[in-house]
Amino acid sequence: MSENHERSSFSDHQARILAEVLDAIIPPSADGLLPGAGRIDLAGAIEDALRQTPEVLAMIVQGLSSLDELARRRGSQDFTALHETDRREVMEELASSQDAFPPVLILQTFAAYYRSQRVLEELGLEARAPHPSGYAVEPNNFALLDAVRRRPPFYRQC
């Protein structure tokens, strides 16, 4: 539903960093059925979601650069060259600096991941918008109301 988007805000390098970060936010499931968030091209979906708030998108781009910078301070060529444990530490370092980038990216990742066609299908859901088809719901059976119906009116008369 959301996996083919034209990218414009992220360079190829930033897109690689983003994929690694997204995979850390939502890794693949243990059984391998659900993909990591970095493996289903959420960058376009996140860009789309933030199109109305370019300052937030810019903050995410800046956040990716910050990860690179922190990685270089550790002697690495860039963030993607770090070992997984070191990546996690770098991300935690950025989060602890109270940078708004991590929580915003986590929110956007959750929102984008759980509208991905592949993820929805794996969860056993129809990968479609609620409208125009809607959903069938079991018909009402008011037998459960019998006890309440026997109750006398209890609003205050006035």
Binding site: Q52, Y114, P130, H131
Partner: peptide, 16 residues
């Protein structure tokens, strides 16, 4: 309206 798109929850909870 958002309900016609796959991103309806994101638009409702985080967006326009």
């Amino acid at each position: 309206y958002p309900g016609l798109g796959g991103d309806w929850e994101a638009r409702q909870l985080l967006g326009d």
